[in-house]
Amino acid sequence: MNILRLAGDMTHLISVIVLLLKIHSIKSCAGISLKTQELYALVFVSRYLNIFTDFISLYNTIMKLIFLGTSFSIVWYMRYHKIVRRSYDKDQDTFRHYFLVLPCLILALLINERFTFKEIMWTFSLYLEAVAILPQLVLLQRTKNTDNLTVQYIFLLGAYRALYILNWIYRYFTEPDYLHWITWISGLVQTILYGDFFYYYFLSWKNNVKLQLPA
């Protein structure tokens, strides 16, 4: 495993820790989209169907378990925790997330590396992950007072896929037969969706002011 891939995984892991820290410490999920969190839980379930069938490494298995466990616990907190759920911006978080699920599933059935159940679910998870941030970005734009942890969480989540792109470029040049168009294009789309956010993130960082996306 190369350093870029490790950096990507760690950024992903830290993003989840930041979100859980926010939920645990201030017992609030204000500004966090439950729609996006549910989509991530679905992404991990569909992608990690191979967790018990294909052993890759201990690192790989542990990380999969962490991502599965944390994504479901975040959804649980936002839906059922008696204090946390009160801070959920339900009226603002109106993105119709199921409109993303069906097109991704159809696309996975049409465009995949191999027509097997596991492979289609894997491909579906890539397509869905690429667009799963959309409800969160919409909510961010609607929220007037976004706290710093939410902004950092979104930034880290975007940075993770950007680092993965560098990892794919590295692997392409160092490994024979490493060619995965579906993964690459999905990852690229995912990163591009963050373009606007990244732009305003750096602007707010440079000018040392609170991030607010223009309506």
Partner: peptide, 10 residues
Amino acid sequence: EAHSSSHDEL
């Protein structure tokens, strides 16, 4: 069945 080389990623 051998896994595809992209499947060692997370």
